[in-house]
């Protein structure tokens, strides 16, 4: 029986084996890049909100603490989105005619909640608790970025599992003194401060599956 392929096709076949490796590697690489891209993670993307609330103005310019609005961050899994009444603590007198805040006044009058678009949303199969992170010395900034520089809120971290593990494997890279939790732009005072704080705060960072997937 005659040969089906001519000898010259050997080159093509060898090339295709060789090229196939790059094709597969390229596809895997492409997936890895796309998976981490802001198209997938939403990092740096400003989502439409019913009111253009500026964290920059309220925290950096006015000096209001994160906890003033996110009251349950210290002792609850959920940091808390303030009720409209919290806005009205100031906005009953300040900017109380502003058309920008019409939705706030409307909500306060009717009891109808303001429908914010959630920005930091972990998958439902992840257990996360704000309280323990705050209690052990992880600042807001480590996960939420420089909120004081954001006129409109956005994600600065992917919130992907590799990102969680990055810190859980070496918490000394992020841990800060308890007095600096809400500080923006904090830097360690000296190199081994993190290691010392680990002992001081009794941090036993867990990386087992069931820590978060419970």
């Amino acid at each position: 029986m005659a040969q089906i392929f001519h000898r010259s096709t050997n080159t093509i076949s060898r090339l295709s084996i060789f090229g196939g490796i790059f094709l597969v590697a390229g596809l895997i690489g492409l997936f890895a890049v796309l998976d981490r891209s802001s198209y997938n993670t939403g990092v740096g993307v400003v989502l439409a909100q019913p009111i253009p609330f500026s964290h920059d103005h309220h925290t950096a310019a006015l000096g209001i603490s994160c906890v003033y609005c996110h009251t349950s961050v210290e002792d609850s899994a959920f940091a808390g989105i303030p009720p409209t009444a919290t806005c009205m603590n100031c906005h009953n007198l300040i900017w109380n005619q502003s058309p920008m805040l019409a939705a706030v006044r409307e909500s306060y009058r009717t009891g109808e909640p303001i429908r914010w678009t959630r920005v930091h949303d972990l998958p439902d199969y992840v257990y996360f608790n704000h309280g323990i992170h705050v209690a052990k010395g992880i600042g807001c900034e480590s996960c939420h970025g420089r909120v004081d520089l954001m006129p409109l809120i956005m994600k600065t971290e992917s919130l992907q599992m590799e990102w969680c593990l990055d810190c859980h494997r070496q918490p000394e890279s992020r841990v800060r003194p308890l007095s600096e939790i809400y500080t923006m732009g904090w830097r360690p005072e000296h190199a081994d401060q993190g290691t010392r704080l680990i002992a001081e705060h009794d941090i036993n960072s867990k990386v087992s599956c069931s820590t978060c997937h419970r």
Partner: peptide, 10 residues
């Protein structure tokens, strides 16, 4: 995997 001549005659 086409191996050309080595498959010949099979």
């Amino acid at each position: 995997v086409p191996l050309g001549s080595r498959q010949a005659g099979r």
